[in-house]
Simulated assay, not measured.
Amino acid sequence: MAAGDAEKGKAKSATCAACHGAKGISMIPMYPNLAGQKEQYLVLQLKAFRDGQRKNMQMGPMASSLSDDDIDNLAAYYAGLNPAG
């Protein structure tokens, strides 16, 4: 069972869509697809970007303002998407 609220995650995902695609499938090869990723993996990665444990010029600033609830909700949303589009 998802820890986050996928509907809230969907509402929060507009910024993510610029690089990772509206449905979590990136049209830009250098950005990973998020659709269908394991929820806990997404949580860990977003927290690592937010907390500075993982460095990335684009993701650091994007994740810096996310709360734990935001991260849980985004992870639930993307984990629930079909990776085939």
Rank of each mutant, 00 (worst) to 15 (best):
H20S: 04
A75G: 09
Q45A: 13
M30P: 10
A6R: 07
S13R: 02
Y31F: 15
M62Q: 13
D68W: 11
K47M: 14
A18I: 15
Y31M: 09
L46F: 11
A79H: 01
N33W: 00
A48F: 06
Y78D: 03
M62K: 09
A76D: 01
A48V: 10
T15H: 12
A2G: 13
S67N: 10
H20Y: 03
K12G: 13
Y77D: 06
M27T: 13
A63Y: 08
S26W: 02
A79G: 06
A17G: 13
A35W: 00
Y31R: 03
P61G: 07
G21H: 00
A35K: 00
G9N: 02
A79F: 01
Q37L: 11
G4D: 02
G9C: 03
Y77P: 08
L42V: 15
Q53C: 09
G80V: 02
E7C: 08
A79Q: 02
G36F: 00
K55Q: 14
L74G: 10
Q53N: 15
R50V: 11
Y31Q: 06
M1R: 11
P61I: 05
I25R: 01
G36K: 00
L46C: 11
Q40S: 15
N56Q: 05
K55G: 09
A75Q: 05
N33F: 01
Q40I: 13
G52L: 05
P32W: 02
S13E: 04
P83A: 00
P29L: 05
Y77N: 05
K47V: 13
M1T: 12
A14N: 14
A18K: 12
H20V: 07
A11F: 03
E39H: 00
K12L: 15
C16T: 06
G36A: 00
Q53G: 15
Y77A: 06
D69L: 12
T15L: 15
I71K: 04
Q37N: 10
M30Y: 07
M27F: 07
N82M: 03
L74E: 07
I25T: 07
A76L: 02
E7I: 13
C19R: 04
P61V: 10
I25L: 07
N82S: 06
A76Q: 02
K38R: 14
N82P: 04
Q45V: 15
I28R: 11
Y41M: 08
G60A: 13
G85P: 08
R50H: 08
L34I: 07
P61L: 08
M62T: 11
M1Q: 13
P29A: 06
G36W: 01
C16Q: 04
K23I: 12
N73F: 08
